[in-house]
Simulated scan of single mutants.
Amino acid sequence: MLTWLTRDSLTFPPLEKALHDPNGLLAAGGDLSPERLVQAYRHGCFPWYSDGQPILWWSPDPRTVLFPGELHVSRSLAKLLRQGRYQVSFDRDFAAVIDACAAPRDYADGTWITQTMRDAYCELHRRGFAHSVEVRQDGELVGGLYGLAMGQLFFGESMFSRADNASKVGFVTLVEHLREAGFVLIDCQMPTNHLHSLGARAISRAEFAGYLAGHLDQPNSASWVC
């Protein structure tokens, strides 16, 4: 039975109670307050829903993750990185990145990044939890991604690209930055060919929960001034 959350409690049900069909649906309701969102990621779930739906909270099994040491950079991508065609920065324009991620795409109808979702993650950015990666070409924003950093874990949320491989350049730059800062895992949530090509793979929900328990409260040396 699906758990319905109230606005009075930040407690989520155990991950083991997530539905098998649809895979990983854990709870519905509640709100997108900064406190609830932080608790959700710490618990191992994330919000994903469309306009007109209640807030839905997910913890899929298996979970798609990338270990920084397993990052795969193809020869063509490595060549592109050496060329310096794109310029990458962190936290220069979080709002522009999330707006670009929410923009319509040729392969999808609508967006799950509602205005309420946008406002909530912008607030997390102001509080130091959410971070953005901007990829520019000749000063124009052509790619990027955003997510949350907690302890030695990074929780990726969404990415976009308006130029060839721009999002991959941003992602590779981020992964290398996180590896140097002591991060042990990047949560990619759901599988895509794009992520698998970069080295992402599936682990069980139980294994993912183990990383949460072991690394959420460990220090990192990441600097987001770039």
Rank of each mutant, 00 (worst) to 15 (best):
Ser76Asp: 06
Glu176Met: 07
Glu157Lys: 05
Leu32Trp: 12
Gly151Thr: 08
Tyr41Asn: 05
His196Tyr: 12
Asp61Gly: 06
Glu157Thr: 04
Leu153Gly: 01
Asn220Pro: 10
Thr6Arg: 13
His125Gly: 07
Val172Ala: 10
Gly144Phe: 14
Leu148Met: 09
Leu10Gln: 10
Arg201Thr: 08
Met159Ala: 10
Val184Phe: 07
Gln83Trp: 05
Val225Asn: 12
Phe46Asp: 05
Ala209Gly: 09
Glu176Phe: 02
Gln152Met: 01
Trp48Gly: 03
Lys17Gly: 03
Gln137Thr: 01
Val38Phe: 09
Asn193Phe: 05
Ile203Arg: 11
Gly143Lys: 10
Leu141Met: 08
Ala78Trp: 07
His131Lys: 14
Ser74Trp: 13
Val38Glu: 11
Ala206Ser: 11
Arg126Asp: 12
Leu124Thr: 13
Arg36Val: 11
Phe46Asn: 06
Thr6Asp: 09
Glu207His: 14
Trp224Met: 08
Thr116Leu: 10
Glu123Ile: 06
Glu140Met: 05
Pro191His: 12
Val88His: 01
Leu71Val: 12
Gly128Met: 10
Leu37Thr: 03
Arg92Thr: 13
Gln189Tyr: 04
Leu212Asn: 03
Arg36Tyr: 07
Asp93Trp: 09
Leu77Cys: 10
Leu77Ile: 13
Ala222Met: 14
Leu19Pro: 04
Asp106Val: 15
Leu37Lys: 01
Phe90Val: 08
Pro14Asn: 07
His125Thr: 11
Arg205Asn: 06
Thr3Asp: 05
Asp138Trp: 09
Trp224Leu: 06
Ser33Val: 01
Arg105Met: 02
Pro219Asp: 02
Leu195Tyr: 10
Asp91Pro: 07
Val225Thr: 14
His20Leu: 02
Gly128Asp: 01
Asn193Arg: 15
Ala163Leu: 00
Tyr49His: 13
Asp8Met: 11
Tyr107Asp: 11
Arg82Ser: 14
Pro14Lys: 13
Phe155Lys: 02
Gln218His: 10
Gln115Lys: 13
Trp48His: 00
Trp4Ser: 02
Ser76Lys: 15
Gly52Lys: 06
Gln83Val: 11
Gly139Glu: 11
Ala130Lys: 15
Phe208Cys: 04
Leu2Glu: 00
Asp187His: 01
Tyr49Phe: 15
Ala206Phe: 01
Arg205Thr: 00
Ser50Met: 11
Ala163Gly: 06
Leu77Phe: 09
Tyr49Lys: 01
Asp187Lys: 07
Asp93Tyr: 10
Gly156Val: 00
Gly30Thr: 08
Arg105Val: 00
Asp8Asn: 12
Leu145Arg: 14
His194Met: 04
Ala108Val: 05
